[in-house]
């Protein structure tokens, strides 16, 4: 198990145009990107958002290698959707007849199409986390959700919870590592045997981990209360979110991309 190899959701500090963009814009535009991606209904139209991703990666100064690195954790999903589409999409032209199942040209086409779409989705959305620090990200979410505060929606609390959760991920990973070593030293075998055996072997790791996580949570709550934390009301921020010309320019660019996709769809 190597938890450090997962790059999805990681932040790469930098000073590119995309890094300097307003986090709120990046979030909203990433939703716009999903819309663009799902508006495209043929290969030619799908080419446009894909080209956009390559452009964005260049603008972020992030190596294309990460596009492939991202693929590893989602491989099972890709293979599963690929196979489902390959076998169950019907059509007119039979490519292979395996007896119990026929593979049609349409099936192959949908399979490739869906896989490209999922890969584009993951790589595109990753740009946001690659270029935005977790703190800015949660601040942006809070800011975007703040109109809902009038409806008693706990926007600040939600953002605070996310910040704390993100903050403690490395701590918990380290703790898991330590407990695993301690149990291994007592002869626990954590990486051999079948699924049922492995799941059972995790108990000596999970119980101490939960206990320390709960303890840490209650200590943190006390520490926050000692410093008179009372939620988001009247709270000011050290880092203010600011939008600039780049944000509006990129938004226009994205809307143009959407327009192009719609045009190619019709044509």
């Amino acid at each position: 198990m190597n938890l450090k190899d997962i790059t999805i959701g990681q932040f790469f500090p930098g000073d590119s145009i995309v890094h300097r963009m307003d986090g709120r814009f990046k979030l909203v535009l990433s939703f716009l990107f999903i819309i663009i991606l799902f508006t495209a209904d043929n290969f030619r139209a799908l080419f446009i958002p894909c080209a956009f991703i390559l452009m964005a990666y260049t603008a972020c100064e992030i190596s294309y290698v990460f596009i492939f690195k991202n693929m590893r954790p989602i491989m099972p999903i890709l293979i599963f959707t690929g196979i489902i589409n390959l076998f169950f999409v019907g059509g007119n032209e039979v490519l292979w007849d395996l007896g119990f199942v026929q593979i049609y040209l349409e099936g192959v086409r949908t399979c490739v199409f869906v896989i490209i779409r999922i890969v584009a989705l993951i790589t595109g959305m990753s740009i946001v986390t690659y270029t935005t620090s977790p703190i800015t990200l949660t601040d942006s979410i809070e800011s975007l959700l703040s109109p809902l505060k009038k409806l008693n929606f706990p926007a600040h609390e939600l953002a605070m919870m996310m910040t704390i959760a993100l903050r403690f991920i490395p701590t918990l990973v380290e703790e898991t590592d330590k407990i695993m070593s301690a149990q291994k030293a007592r002869g626990a075998s954590l990486d051999t045997g079948g699924i049922a055996k492995r799941a059972k072997a995790l108990i000596p790791v999970l119980i101490p981990l939960f206990i320390s996580a709960f303890k840490r949570a209650s200590e943190l709550a006390t520490a926050m209360e000692c410093r008179c934390y009372r939620g988001g009301e009247g709270r000011t921020k050290m880092r203010q979110l600011k939008s600039s010309k780049i944000d509006y320019l990129v938004s226009v660019l994205m809307l143009c991309t959407l327009g192009m996709v719609i045009l190619v769809n019709i044509a």
Binding site: K178, I179, S181, A182, Q183, K184, A185, R186, G187, P204, P208, S212
Partner: peptide, 15 residues
């Protein structure tokens, strides 16, 4: 690992 017993720092966390 049975021949060489290792007790980590703050070993009570392993209970």
């Amino acid at each position: 690992r049975f021949e060489v017993g290792l007790v980590f720092q703050y070993s009570e966390h392993q209970l």
